[in-house]
C-alpha cells in the first residue's frame, strides 16, 4: 500500500463498442430463437451472461451463420455504415413473414475524435442495460402470438448505399409483416452505439 493508487480508467473504444453490440445481438437472437420456439429446446444450452441464464443454440449451422453474420456486422459497425439489423422469422412453407425483430443502431459522439473514439461509460452500466433488454425479450413470449408452423429465420443488415457487397452476401428484399403490431423494447447505449430493439409481429384476430 505504498505510493498513490493509480486510478485505472476503463474506457471503451469504437472496436470494443462494436463488439459489445455484436455480443448483445448474439445473445439476443439466440434467446429469441429459443423463446419463440423456432427450434427444438433440446438443441439449446444455457449460458450465464449479463447476470442472466441465456439459452444458446448448439446447432452448428446456426452457430456458424450467426458468427459469420455478426463478424461482418462488426466491421460495418466500426465503419458506422449500419443503420439497422433485422431478424426475420418466416414461415417455411408459405414464406410469409411472421415476425421481425429490428435492432436499430444509432451513432453517438464525435467520430473524428483524436486518438479514436472512446466512451467513458462503465461497462457494468452497459451490461445492466443490456440485461434489461434481454429480460424484456424473454418476457415477450407473454404477448407475442404463437408461431404454430415450421419457421426459419434470417438476418438482414440495413447499411448505407456506399457499402461494398462482400462475397457470400447478397441484397435482400425488405420484409414486411402483414397486419403488423409493433412493440418497442428498452434500448441501451455504449455512448458510441445506441441500439433500439423493436419487435413487429402479425396481429391475429
Amino acid at each position: 500500500m505504498t505510493g498513490v493508487v493509480q486510478q485505472s480508467k476503463s474506457s471503451i473504444t469504437l472496436k470494443g463498442s462494436a463488439e459489445i453490440v455484436c455480443d448483445y445481438l448474439n445473445f439476443g437472437i439466440n434467446s429469441i430463437l429459443f423463446q419463440r420456439g423456432l427450434y427444438p429446446p433440446e438443441n439449446f444450452q444455457s449460458v450465464e451472461n449479463y447476470g442472466l441464464t441465456i439459452l444458446m443454440s448448439t446447432d452448428n449451422k446456426i452457430k456458424e451463420f450467426l458468427s459469420s453474420t455478426l463478424s461482418q456486422l462488426k466491421e460495418w459497425l466500426i465503419q458506422r455504415s449500419v443503420t439497422k439489423v433485422a431478424l426475420i422469422i418466416t414461415n417455411v412453407k408459405t414464406l410469409e413473414v411472421m415476425e421481425r425483430w429490428d435492432f436499430r443502431v444509432e451513432y453517438e459522439g464525435n467520430p473524428d475524435e483524436a486518438g479514436g473514439q472512446v466512451s467513458e461509460k462503465p461497462l457494468k452500466t452497459i451490461k445492466n442495460e443490456i440485461r434489461d433488454v434481454l429480460k424484456q425479450i424473454a418476457s415477450s413470449v407473454a404477448y407475442l402470438p404463437l408461431l404454430d408452423c415450421l419457421c426459419s429465420f434470417d438476418i438482414q443488415i440495413y447499411t448505407k448505399s456506399n457499402v461494398d457487397l462482400p462475397s457470400q452476401w447478397s441484397e435482400a428484399e425488405m420484409a414486411h409483416v402483414k397486419n403488423a403490431q409493433t412493440v418497442k423494447m428498452r434500448s441501451f447505449s455504449t455512448n458510441i452505439h445506441k441500439v433500439d430493439t423493436v419487435v413487429t409481429y402479425k396481429n391475429e384476430d
Binding site: 420456439g37 427444438p40 446456426i62 453474420t69 404463437l146 419457421c151 426459419s152 448505407k160 457470400q168 452476401w169
Partner: peptide, 22 residues
C-alpha cells in the same frame, strides 16, 4: 440504403417439429 443478408441461410427446424410453446 442497402439491405444485405448472408447467403448461407440457417437451417429450419426439423420436419415435423412442433413449437413447444404450443
Amino acid at each position: 440504403q442497402k439491405i444485405l443478408s448472408y447467403r448461407v441461410k440457417p437451417p429450419s427446424a426439423p420436419a415435423g417439429f412442433q413449437n413447444p410453446m404450443r
